[in-house]
Design a protein around this nucleic acid. Structure first.
Length: 445
DNA sequence: ATCGGCTCGCGCAA
DNA sequence: TGCGCGAAGCCGAT
């Protein structure tokens, strides 16, 4: 593994004891740098290796559907780890307490965890690193070019990060070694009490059917193959047409780490598809830009985090008359005057997803029809976190920041409410795609 | 149908 | 210090 994936969260040296991989963002066994690193440390120290997952109840407004999606994936993680002779544990309760308690109970000697720029995850990791007297190593298993290696500061736009990524990509876009069986004398007979876990998450397991999307590493692999066979070649022209089915739909798998971006990128880059470059732009540049934004901007999910020019211009339009004015419940229940917006919102609530192009329109209209930019921002973040299967993710926060706050964008002609933040209109959508077909596709779903 | 202007600031060249 | 240029657009002029 490239050492640039490693970030030590304290500088305690290893003395003795088992290696714990605290799995969090990257919920997979295959193609997981953090697990590979933990395994090689365990072999080096001749120590046992275990994997821990800490289940946080009510994580960032997550709904039962999202827990069900995640837990189905974790059941597969348990199976695959068992096949490799690695025990898997799930702890419930506040991870800032349950993780250190687990580490102490086990007398662990090293904790390895994966990288996630979200504040709540940083609090968990840092409280662990402060509480335990063992080394805590963070491994960026999510990004292809590790976030901290790509850039040491918040990037201004895609173009500034793109250059840096392209320079480093040849060093990082390589096959991930496969995980070999972990052969030690330790027993791997542990098994998770799933009934207890489901109860702690407050889900029955039936919610998955309502969303209608399979979960887990095998489903992710199937979805990827399906996209390669029919979808990838047309991606360039179809992706911005919400009435077509032109996007990959892989985002929930990437969000929960059930699918490795590195594997996907490697296959795409070798594919020779005519849409290769456009897809790689989304998968690599835009994804890593979102992580960069959240890592270096602690206000990534609020009005406070947007660029100064956008703050100023939105502030100047604070008193502008709003032609339509809605509150959070109106938005959540899709009770606006705009059938296009309502359709996007209804589809989101029903299926946990929204077309990428509509995500921009959706957020910009929340700005247009809310009493203040702050209120709009809060509404967008809450509804995105609550309903998107891939919510609670840097991509979502960066998308809202772009739509409402001009982050990673440039100023445009001054107009009511938006100021110089880029505007999007119903008319524009009508000229770009078949609105009626989009609405019908959601109503008939 | 096509085109330019809108407007700020980063990063690089000079 | 100047200059080119930037996620997905909009609008009015031609």
């Amino acid at each position: 593994m490239d050492e640039r994936r490693l970030h030590a969260l304290n500088d305690v040296p290893y003395s003795s004891g088992p290696v714990v991989y605290w799995m969090s963002r990257d919920q997979r066994v295959r193609d997981n740098w953090a697990l590979l690193y933990a395994r090689s440390r365990a072999l080096e120290y001749r120590a046992p290796l275990v994997v821990l997952f800490c289940l946080a109840e009510r994580f960032l407004a997550a709904r039962p559907e999202q827990y069900t999606f995640m837990l189905a994936g974790l059941r597969a993680v348990e199976e695959e780890l068992r096949a490799c002779g690695i025990p898997f544990y799930i702890e419930t309760g506040d991870p800032a307490r349950s993780a250190p308690a687990f580490v102490e109970r086990l007398n662990a000697g090293l904790v390895v965890t994966d990288f996630d720029p979200l504040r709540v995850k940083r609090v968990w990791r840092e409280s662990l690193a402060a509480k335990v007297r063992v080394p805590v190593h963070e491994i960026d298993a999510h990004n292809i070019v590790p976030c901290r290696a790509a850039s040491g500061k918040q990037e201004y736009g895609a173009h500034t990060l793109r250059k840096k990524l392209n320079r480093l990509l040849p060093e990082f876009l390589l096959p991930v070694p496969s995980l070999k069986k972990f052969n030690t004398a330790q027993s791997s007979s542990s098994s998770v009490n799933w009934e207890r876990v489901y109860r702690a998450a407050g889900v029955s397991g039936e919610e998955a059917e309502r969303i209608g999307m399979e979960s887990g590493p095998r489903a992710a692999e199937r979805a990827m193959r399906r996209f390669f066979q029919k979808g990838l070649d047309d991606y360039s022209w179809a992706r911005n047409d919400p009435s077509a089915n032109g996007q990959s739909g892989l985002s929930p798998y990437l969000h929960f780490g059930q699918l490795s971006a590195q594997r996907l990128a490697l296959e795409i880059s070798r594919s020779g598809s005519r849409s290769r470059d456009d897809f790689m732009e989304q998968l690599v540049v835009r994804r890593e830009l979102a992580d960069n934004y959240c890592l270096y901007n602690p206000r990534y999910d609020s009005f406070e985090g947007i660029p100064d020019w956008a703050k100023k211009t939105l502030d100047r339009h604070r008193a502008d008359v709003r032609e339509y004015l809605y509150g959070r419940d109106d938005f959540e229940e899709a009770r606006t005057h705009d059938p296009l917006w309502n359709a996007a919102q209804k589809g989101l609530v029903r299926r946990g997803t929204m077309h990428g192009y509509m995500r921009m329109y959706w957020a910009k209209k929340i700005l247009e029809w809310s009493a203040s930019p702050e209120e709009a921002y809060e509404t967008a973040v809450l509804l995105n976190d609550r309903h998107q299967l891939d919510g609670r993710d840097p991509n979502g926060y960066a998308g809202i920041a772009w739509s409402i706050g001009g982050t990673h964008d440039r100023p445009w002609a001054d107009r009511p409410v938006f100021g110089m933040v880029r505007y999007m209109s119903f008319k524009g959508c009508a000229s770009k795609f078949n609105i009626r077909r989009y609405i019908e596709s959601i109503e008939n779903d």
